[in-house]
Design a protein around this nucleic acid. Structure first.
Length: 743
DNA sequence: TCCCAGCGCCTTTTT
DNA sequence: GGCGCTGGGA
């Protein structure tokens, strides 16, 4: 085909030698080690197109797996640009979306009934909580979230309730099972029974059940192996055990031998999800698992300036567990990183806002990102930007689909699709108030449980046994059944409108509209939800309610990100992976925050935090600003922050201290002092003079020290005072190392 | 059954 | 500073 010839020319001409090697090698497994900004997505999309246009793979025989819907969408978009409309026939999706599609197609083989629903984390925790109560475990003492997490881990490791309760498995960290792992193992079978009774699956099921099904039905697996002749995997460093297994299964047919139809792309330096079960071994052991594997290194960076790359490279070189590599660029060195040292988190926020304002003069706001380690840090930035009237968007945090009123409506919809969904039933049965309280619900759940049916389904037969709530329950059942009947012919939008009409859910917020700001907000959110459903119905091939719920279940925080308007973006560093901006402002470079205090618990923790900082730095094309706050308010306590160790790991010559910063000793200077054998060990790196302090006024005053915390001055001389600290006792300290407190 | 005040916990990162 | 849970009172 002529069109193909043209495409082929473009396909390879666009690429550098290493990228071309990665694309052209199709006869054996390929591992692409792709540094930040080295054109990883470009390699995958080009290879996808190359396979179809040049190697005779029909598009429908190609499978590309990603982690986020956004990445999948981007990939599909770019493949269509390269290959034309037929790229749509390739399967491009997230692991979970593809898993769900496979399960839907073979639900009975997977041990599920048609119409099963996908539970999100909150639903899952609600189930766990009930299981805990059933098993006389106090949900107050052990958080259901912790148990949910552990059960998720079991599934990620391919362990079913049988294996786990048989006891022949080892704990995640080390050999022995911890107490909570033990408890999770005990509750696991009941949890699975409960989920199954409600015809529900959790996130982990979407992959684990597929793997299990493929193991039980080799012919089915063979079907999929024949269908997907070539598999491409993005962000391979983030794959976990079950994902690794799934990939290996898909490419393990005899014809392909040792996984010829497989290309994986990843960067061990950007592996930041080990806490979620990602196995770096998947990428490190790839050459051992596939002995004919071809390894391609992409080390030319097309994104950042020379200085940003050098600083990031110097930093990441301190990690021991990594493939040695060095990114390079042919572009100019650019500007130094700017380090802004602030007295407090409030000042940090104000200075970030000022920075956004000044940068925003020359740079579109869409090209500026404020990055932080934890979501909680976003609030101050939002307030400061709001005060300055700078438009911003927050990625993550409380997501639209996690808002209480939105979840209520989704629960209604789920109950319509699946009358066995007791979690959804319990959530909505009394919203708005219908006089059906916990007592009635509990009684009904008990009766339904005894019959092995869902609570909602049980109403017609069991309601008569519940004297007080009988009529109200029957009314509720009647109302919802009438809405549910629409499903056979109506779109999701029509069902939602009918639900709002008949349930009275919307009008509870309508009646207060105008006077009640909160109700107004909730009402707006419900309207937003209606738009989302309407938009879905226009776009989707299958506009049914079921299809809508499937899509919503797999949405992530990144997917609600809108890009039309000019706004500065606020997000966690994790959320920023894979994105790039002209300007990155990386905040909160403090011990305990970045690296996070919890990372000290396990051995590789600090290395992972360092990779995270590396990811943050390499998001920027042109300029990086780093901020530090000397004091930070947690809850209602003021915490004194030490500068992050990472600051001292940046080459001092590549960092400029921003004007107006606290005084600070940078890397080289500090290191040379360490070599001299400073007897104090930890020297305060941030020094703020205690100005205008005389001893008469000073006695009894409260002061703060960077290492010892808050203490009281009990004596001393002009420039050196004796301070009593609660934990370390009395110390003689130079006044200039102390901060005077007002109280 | 509903309402509200008071308390305790939270804060790592999310497919 | 917020959210969910709890317990007492209406």
């Amino acid at each position: 085909m002529i069109a193909d010839e043209t495409l082929n020319g473009d396909l390879l001409a666009d690429l550098n030698a290493a990228q071309r090697d990665a694309v052209e090698t199709v006869d054996r497994p390929v591992l692409v080690l792709a540094g930040a900004g080295s054109g990883k997505t470009r390699v995958i999309t080009h290879k996808l197109s190359y396979l179809a246009a040049r190697c005779g793979y029909p598009p429908e025989s190609l499978l590309a797996l990603t982690f986020t819907n956004k990445a999948a969408r981007e990939m599909r978009h770019r493949a269509v640009r390269l290959l034309g409309e037929r790229a749509e026939r390739a399967t491009i999706g997230t692991f979970h979306a593809v898993g769900l599609r496979v399960l839907r197609r073979h639900s009975s083989l997977a041990g599920l009934r048609p119409g099963f629903v996908v539970y999100d984390v909150a639903d899952q925790e609600a189930v766990i909580k009930r299981v805990m109560i059933d098993n006389d475990v106090d949900p107050q003492r052990i958080r259901p979230a912790a148990i949910a997490n552990l059960i998720e881990q079991f599934k990620r490791r391919g362990l079913g309730p049988e294996e786990v309760s048989a006891g022949d498995w080892v704990g995640e960290s080390g050999r022995a099972q911890s107490a909570s792992e033990h408890l999770a193992a005990r509750l696991y079978p009941s949890y699975e029974r409960r989920m199954s009774a409600m015809n529900a699956v959790d996130f982990g099921d979407l992959l684990w059940r597929v793997v299990k099904m493929f193991m039980s039905y080799p012919l089915l697996l063979a079907d999929y192996q024949r269908r997907w002749r070539y598999v491409l995997v993005d962000e391979f460093q983030d794959t976990d055990e079950i994902q690794g297994r799934l990939i290996r299964m898909l490419v393990a047919d005899s014809e392909r031998g040792s996984g010829a139809g497989l290309t994986v792309v990843g960067d061990d330096d950007q592996s930041i999800y080990s806490w979620r079960g990602a196995r770096i071994e998947n990428i490190l052991n790839f050459p051992n698992l596939f002995d004919s594997a071809h390894i391609v290194r992409l080390e030319q960076n097309y994104r950042s300036t020379g200085i940003i790359l050098e600083a990031a490279g110097e930093l990441i070189a301190r990690n021991r567990k990594r493939h040695a590599k060095r990114l390079w660029t042919s572009t100019a060195p650019g500007e130094k990183l700017s380090l802004c040292l602030c007295q407090s988190d409030r000042e940090e926020a104000a200075r970030v806002a000022a920075l956004v304002r000044s940068e925003g003069v020359a740079t579109p706001l869409n090209e500026i990102a404020v990055l932080y380690r934890t979501n909680a840090q976003s609030r101050l930035f939002e307030e400061a930007l709001g005060r300055e009237s700078i438009p911003y968007r927050v990625v993550g945090g409380i997501r639209f689909f996690e808002r209480a009123e939105v979840k209520d409506v989704l629960a209604y919809l789920r109950l319509l699709v699946n009358p066995k969904d007791d979690i959804a039933f319990a959530r909505v049965v009394n919203k708005p108030k219908r006089g059906i309280g916990p007592v009635t619900v509990g009684r009904l759940l008990e009766l339904a449980g005894a019959r092995g049916v869902g609570a909602f389904e049980a109403i017609p037969t069991c309601a008569s046994a519940i004297k007080r709530g009988e009529t109200r329950l029957r009314d509720f059942h009647h109302m919802l059944t009438s809405v549910g009947a629409l499903q056979s012919h109506a779109t999701a939008l029509e069902v939602v409108k009918a639900l709002f009409d008949r349930s009275g859910y919307l009008s509870q917020y309508l009646s207060h509209a105008g006077e009640d700001v909160e109700a107004q907000g909730r009402h707006d959110n419900l309207m937003e939800l209606v738009s989302s459903v309407a938009e879905f119905c226009e776009r989707a091939q299958d506009p049914s309610l079921k299809a809508y719920l499937d899509e919503v279940a797999l949405l992530t925080h990144l997917d609600t990100m809108t890009e039309e308007e000019q706004r500065v973006t606020l997000m966690t560093v994790h959320a920023a992976k894979g994105l790039e901006f002209e300007v990155a402002i990386v905040s909160g470079l403090e011990e305990g925050i970045f690296p996070h205090s919890n990372s000290r618990l396990d051995e590789g923790g600090v290395e992972e935090e360092r990779r995270l900082f590396y990811v943050a730095l390499t998001r920027a094309r042109k300029r990086v600003f780093i901020t530090f706050a000397q004091s930070r308010r947690h809850w209602d306590e003021l915490a004194y922050q030490a500068p992050s160790r990472f600051l001292n790991e940046l080459p001092a010559g590549l960092v400029a201290i921003a004007p107006g910063s606290l005084s600070f000793k940078m890397g080289a200077e500090r290191r040379s002092r360490d070599v001299d054998g400073d007897p104090e060990g930890i020297v305060p790196e941030v020094i703020e003079p205690c100005e205008g302090l005389t001893l008469e006024e000073a006695r009894g005053r409260r002061v703060r020290h960077s290492s010892f915390g808050i203490g009281t001055i009990v004596g001393g001389r002009e420039d050196c005072v004796l301070v009593d600290f609660p934990h370390v006792g009395q110390r003689s300290i130079m006044i200039r190392y102390l901060e005077l407190l007002n109280s």
